[in-house]
């Protein structure tokens, strides 16, 4: 648990309220959410969400709370340096 950030991969039901549920959870429980990316899966009943979150003592609680959301199908934890965000970074200018 040394890296500052970690990457979570979520499979969720694909409907308009899901983003609100996930993002709302982070804000009302005062969890840190640094980045978020979401697109429908090939099977468009589901979406895949990538979250970059703080790797601190709250992490296990975040994961448990995410699992409790009824639209969450799966939560997986990856390393901070997971490609999903590394490759996205080229679309976000880092200097300004």
């Amino acid at each position: 648990m040394s890296a500052e950030w970690t990457t979570l991969e979520l499979k969720v039901n694909n409907h308009p309220g899901v983003m609100l549920h996930v993002v709302g959870l982070f804000s009302r429980r005062a969890f840190n959410l640094e980045g978020i990316a979401c697109l429908p899966c090939r099977d468009d009943r589901f979406s895949r969400m990538w979250l970059r979150v703080k790797n601190d003592s709250k992490l296990p609680q975040i994961v448990e709370q995410l699992k409790k959301l009824h639209d969450t199908r799966e939560v997986r934890e990856h390393e901070a340096s997971h490609e999903a965000f590394e490759r996205l970074e080229q679309f976000f200018g880092t200097s300004d």
Partner: peptide
């Protein structure tokens, strides 16, 4: 829907 999101188990 938005108002009930944080106060329900599900909506």
């Amino acid at each position: 829907y938005g108002l009930s999101t944080p106060i329900t188990k599900h909506n």
